[in-house]
Design a protein around this nucleic acid. Structure first.
Lengths: 223, 223
DNA sequence: TAGCTAACGTACTAGTTCGTACATTAGTGA
DNA sequence: TCACTAATGTACGAACTAGTACGTTAGCTA
């Protein structure tokens, strides 16, 4: 995911034994393998084989397949959390801010298909690893606070009319971005349209923004 | 999915050997087991054990685990196709028709969580079973034709302004409905909100309709 | 530099899991 | 009613797979 073949920082000799590097390498390979084949389809032996270390080390550092998958999830969620913390849209007007936020979410999903697959897999297992993690359970999301503030501002200024909170809006944006990546294979096979084709990218990116803004700003019957 | 314990139609004695019934029973149990545990997590022995027949019959009728999963998918997709063929919304005005269509889609997703799981699983395997099916590849969807005609009517009457075709709109509606069910576990664990809680049902159902209609009817800068 | 421990490798096992060889019988058509 | 075949059951095997017992060594620290 992040750490790829760190070629021994200058001045620091490549040690033969480096716990941090070994763990990172295991996590890198495990991320790929779990994303590729699912939890049960993934093979511990295969992960070990594609590492410069052995299966023994996986059990030494992580305890087992289950905990390894949890560690993979923890690191993957850590990456989005970091990305979301970089979010800088609150200087924009509410409409532009929401559109920008939607675009950033769109881009992030597109750039991390492995993460999407891991989340799909975790849902098949009813989020049992997240629940067991402690590090992940109810951790929330920095984006949620940002969305909350933009929504408030938009409503105060009278631009936004919709009855949604930050979590709902996040679900709306995520569903579009997530589905486009997670279901591209069945959707493509059944309807003959590749949702992630580069030529369509701008179209779907605009579609998402238009959809969210239209929803938030639509004229509504008094209720 | 459909055939549950058919108790020997009247006048027809319960035969000991009934190929159709055996196959249907295998498919029922296999659907549950694959949806529960994923393709690799599902156990052929477990499927057989929960059947009135034996593992031998699974191989006799379906050939293997892979083909059994394909058969499960084929039947599951058949069910929605049937439901979509019942769709009767074209007597409504375009706005009401689209809203109704969205609601029907919403309801269908909610009522068939096993189907959602199967589709998620098939996407993890990059739709390889659909591709190998022939019966499923590029089969399309009756709903697509309906959507197409409503969109055309809506655009002709000037109500709809959005630049989408039927496939795009279907993707938009599906993404919301699908995500709500498929990702409810991770979403719930991370944000503390149950997207399928009965109390929230009407809220999300309206949200979907509002979103789609707002998108289709939004005033747009001339482009 | 001696010794201690975290880090690592090898080889193995117990249990599982898909798949099949072989034997048997219910039901049907001649 | 007889024979034939589709349908079915039993028992087993080969390959895989998560996990571990046991032994070794690099590198740090006193």
């Amino acid at each position: 995911m992040t750490s790829v073949e760190e070629p021994a920082r200058p001045g620091e000799r490549e040690r033969v034994r480096d716990a941090a590097r070994t763990q990172a390498e295991i996590l890198d390979v495990a991320t790929q393998e779990f994303a590729r084949a699912g939890y049960d389809g993934a093979r511990v032996d295969e992960i070990a084989a594609r590492t410069r270390t052995t299966k023994r080390m996986i059990y030494y550092y992580f305890g087992g397949k289950e905990q390894l998958f949890t560690a993979v999830l923890e690191r993957a969620y850590g990456v989005i959390r970091e990305a979301e913390q970089q979010l800088d849209v609150e200087h924009l007007d509410p409409v532009a801010a929401i559109r920008r936020l939607a675009e950033v979410t769109f881009d992030h999903h597109e750039q991390h298909p492995d993460f999407i697959r891991l989340v799909s897999i975790e849902n098949i297992h009813e989020a049992q690893h997240i629940a067991a993690s402690g590090k992940l359970a109810r951790i929330g999301s920095p984006a949620l606070d940002v969305i909350g503030r933009i929504l408030e501002e938009g409503r105060r200024s009278g631009l936004f009319t919709a009855d949604v909170d930050a979590v709902d809006l996040h679900a709306m944006i995520s569903s579009f971005c997530f589905f486009r990546v997670s279901n591209r294979h069945t959707f493509g096979a059944l309807f003959g349209r590749d949702l992630v084709a580069p030529a369509q990218r701008a179209h779907y990116r605009a579609m998402l923004g238009d959809m969210v803004i239209a929803y938030l700003t639509a004229e509504r019957a008094a209720d």
